[in-house]
Design a protein around this nucleic acid. Sequence first.
DNA 1: GCTAGAGTAGACAATTCGGTCTACATATGT
DNA 2: ACATATGTAGACCGAATTGTCTACTCTAGC
Lengths: 183, 183
Amino acid sequence: MNPKRQLLVDTALDLFYKNGINSIGINEVISVSGVAKRTLYAHFASKEALIVAALQKRHEIFAAWLEQKLSGSNSNQEVIQRLFAALASWFAHKENTLGDFRGCFFINTSAEFSDMNSEILQFCRFHKEQVRDIISRHLINADSALLDAICIMKEGAIVIAQLGGDGGAVTAKCTEMLQALES
Amino acid sequence: MNPKRQLLVDTALDLFYKNGINSIGINEVISVSGVAKRTLYAHFASKEALIVAALQKRHEIFAAWLEQKLSGSNSNQEVIQRLFAALASWFAHKENTLGDFRGCFFINTSAEFSDMNSEILQFCRFHKEQVRDIISRHLINADSALLDAICIMKEGAIVIAQLGGDGGAVTAKCTEMLQALES
DNA sequence: GCTAGAGTAGACAATTCGGTCTACATATGT
DNA sequence: ACATATGTAGACCGAATTGTCTACTCTAGC
């Protein structure tokens, strides 16, 4: 809608994801985006509101990306294979839609805020539920045990890839294990 | 060794782990510990040096805790069972040694710093390698595939527990799946 | 008793933080 | 043509940031 608001959210998301939220001040967001500080505070009541908007934007991007990666799968085996192939591609910085991989924005954000009741952490939990739902909807005869296993390994793979592990090897292991579990 | 230094590291670790590193200023560390600022800078060249010392302390505590939890295991099945039982207990805030659970300090710290070559992130990677080694040493005929699976699920369980998931249920799933994989 | 080491309190510097405010410019709809 | 909305630049505020410095106190060893 509003182009300035959108620019601010995009810039904030980019800076927050790359550097961590507490490392980026409002002044950096405005100087990088080229938007006046007054305009920022015309669109957002506070830095926290901007953070929430950035989280929402990231959620939209990620959910759409995942949905597209999984849509059209014909078996649970294929869902597993596609999901972890997509993650591997993300880890290897080959997914332009998601930007350069630096872990899960929502896990990272959770690390920076301690008030579990804040809107920020509530949204992080919401995102994880939604992602679980997306995966679930693509599974045939949604087996809860399989869904749990997929979600656990997905988070594990993301964390290990972020801390310098071999993202390709890890996702391959996950695929192998989960496909064995399903058959 | 030096009591003031130790007090500073303990206080810093507690505050950093509870609130995130960038949310805690040097002034808070000194006011909570009751140590003069001058003394802090007599022991540490900078905040970064204090952070590294806190990471080291946390690593010592965690490594000793894990070692104790796994020592005396008589089979890979038992290692798996013990590891995830210990994690479940940690997630449920029943491990006094580790303090109230708020995720993995090293994953959390990785989220706050972006320079992969900094001493801070180097130490986070070192910690993960060491933990992997500890688990590996307790496995019989250390099967690399099993070790990978354990490490992936361990990270996944920690992240899910941190974001409000049912830590007990997740660790039970992990135990079940890994024991099936091993038999 | 004196000296040296270690610690204290807190002022201070320089910068940055989130956020407010004034004064002005531009663009759009009627 | 004029009003309204939306934008700009940037001064300003009080608080907080990391880090330095001065001046004083306490304690242990000789």
